[in-house]
């Protein structure tokens, strides 16, 4: 666990790699042999596709394995003028925010409660983690049924409680749909954030609590002055993880609404899939791929720097 205290992200470590390079040829040879299996697969199935995606964004490619011509920035101009691109981008930001608040917030709240437990700690930690084990695609099937207007758990439950006028078309109402689907994703996601916060709590020096008690601090003061500052680094880690997980969000939307109704739950990822595999507009899809990658890289760099600064 000690690594959590340091700048842990690979980017932060990259700065340190620059130390003494080189080495004898024998060393280089054996390093190469040990790297070859990973490098061969990674080069073919990841690095090469990254490069080709970049190239495709400057072409008029309109289908798999078909010849394409260089068209400069045409696709970028088309992307700027495509209203669905802007919608998908807006939805993606909203999606990240929902996920951060719902899954991150729930994870933190539960961790704070579970962290104060003794005998029943393992029981609650295990129970609350269960949703995270379910595949997001299966979560999509589960929640599509939970939201079913006639037989679903939520609407039938509300009627059962005498709250019949609270029932909604959770997935058919354009203003609700993105939030509804995000609840499903966040239900699956909060467990891992909770585990990370619990691990962070265990790293806080218990003598700080003793000192606070001696000073007559209330439980609330301990939370604000000891616990939350002690969780700062885990917090930045969880926030960046939640943002990256949010960016990758795809399966629940694909399964529950396929981006609808009227593109009102379309994310960048689902729009990429639609452009790539349905309308086969690979030039425009590639532009969105670049945008998605840049967002992910920005989040990673910003948070790695922030964490490195906290660690100093």
């Amino acid at each position: 666990m000690q690594t959590i205290a340091g700048p842990t992200g690979p980017l932060a470590r990259a700065a340190k790699v620059k130390t003494r390079m080189g080495g004898s040829t024998g060393e280089t040879g054996s390093a190469l042999w040990l790297m070859v299996p990973a490098l061969a697969i990674y080069a073919v199935f990841t690095l090469f596709p990254v490069a080709v995606t970049f190239w495709l964004s400057f072409t008029n490619s309109a289908g798999f394995n078909t010849p394409a011509e260089f068209t400069g920035l045409d696709n970028y101009a088309r992307a700027v003028h495509d209203p669905i691109v802007w919608q998908a981008l807006g939805h993606t930001f909203l999606w990240l925010l929902y996920h951060l608040v719902l899954a991150g917030g729930l994870g933190l709240a539960l961790a704070l409660a579970i962290g104060s437990l003794g005998k029943t700690r393992t029981f609650f930690r295990t129970a609350f983690f269960l949703p995270h084990l379910v595949s997001l695609a299966v979560v999509g099937v589960i929640w599509a049924n939970i939201y079913d207007p006639f037989f679903g758990l939520i609407n039938t439950g509300l009627i059962g409680l005498g709250l019949g006028n609270w029932t909604q078309g959770w997935l058919s109402d354009p203003s609700l749909v993105l939030f509804s689907v995000n609840v499903a994703s966040s239900w699956q996601g909060f467990g891992i954030y909770m585990l990370l916060f619990i691990a962070g709590l265990q790293n806080i020096d218990s003598s700080l609590y003793d000192a606070a008690s001696v000073d007559g601090a209330t439980p609330f003061q301990k939370l604000v002055h000891v616990t939350l500052p002690g969780l700062r680094e885990v917090m930045t880690f969880v926030v960046s993880l939640a943002l990256i997980n949010g960016l990758k969000g795809f399966a629940t939307v694909f399964v529950m609404t396929n981006g609808g109704p009227f593109y009102r739950s379309e994310l960048i990822t689902t729009y990429i899939y639609r452009l790539a595999f349905q309308s086969q507009d690979h030039g425009l899809a590639a532009v969105l791929c670049i945008v998605l990658s840049l967002l992910a890289i920005t989040i990673t760099v910003v948070f790695t720097r922030w964490r490195a600064r906290l660690a100093q």
Binding site: T46, V52, C289
Partner: peptide
């Protein structure tokens, strides 16, 4: 590769 989402390289 750690950073880029899988959806971003799916076409190639």
């Amino acid at each position: 590769g750690l950073t880029i989402p899988i959806q971003a390289i799916v076409i190639p």
